[in-house]
Amino acid sequence: MLTLQRRQLVGHDILLARHGNHICSMRLDRSTGRVIALLDDGSVDSAPNLISPDLQLPETIQSVLRNDWKFLATVSGCVAGLAGVMIAAAFSLAGLSADPALAELMTTYQAY
């Protein structure tokens, strides 16, 4: 089931347990899967972000977009193309009509 909640970073907890209030800032290094902390004295410490590499974490909005961006872009393009075809068809039908009242009705339908 898709929960779309923020993932808890295990590395943050590990670094907080090690150093407590001596941490100035923390950042996530996605390429190595580690959380890196800058300490008061200028030193740097890091901790792994996962308990187990095969642990299945809940999905987030960012992870869904990162994994499925090609599919979402394709669907969005198809919907935009279909909408363009429908608008073009409505204007062409309005132009083919011999009755000017029908043409005016079809072109101003969005106003209602």
Rank of each mutant, 00 (worst) to 15 (best):
L50H: 11
V64K: 06
A90K: 05
A101L: 11
P48E: 03
Y109K: 14
I23Q: 01
G95S: 08
D99P: 00
R27V: 04
S25D: 14
D13M: 12
A47V: 06
I23T: 06
D41G: 04
W69A: 13
F91V: 02
A111I: 14
N21T: 13
E59G: 01
L82I: 02
I51D: 04
S43D: 08
D45F: 00
G20P: 03
T107I: 12
R18Y: 07
A103G: 10
V75D: 06
T3L: 12
D45H: 04
L50V: 09
V79W: 13
L4N: 09
Y109L: 15
T60Q: 03
W69Q: 13
P53N: 10
Q5I: 05
G77A: 15
L9Q: 08
V85C: 11
L82E: 06
A37W: 00
Y112W: 12
A89K: 11
D40K: 12
Q8L: 08
R66I: 01
A73W: 05
L65Y: 05
A88M: 12
T60D: 00
N67K: 11
M26T: 03
N49Q: 11
L72M: 10
L28T: 08
R30N: 07
L55D: 06
A98T: 11
L105P: 00
R34V: 12
T60V: 02
I36E: 01
R30P: 00
R7P: 01
F91I: 03
A94P: 04
R66W: 05
M86F: 14
G77P: 00
A17I: 03
E104F: 07
S43N: 12
V79H: 13
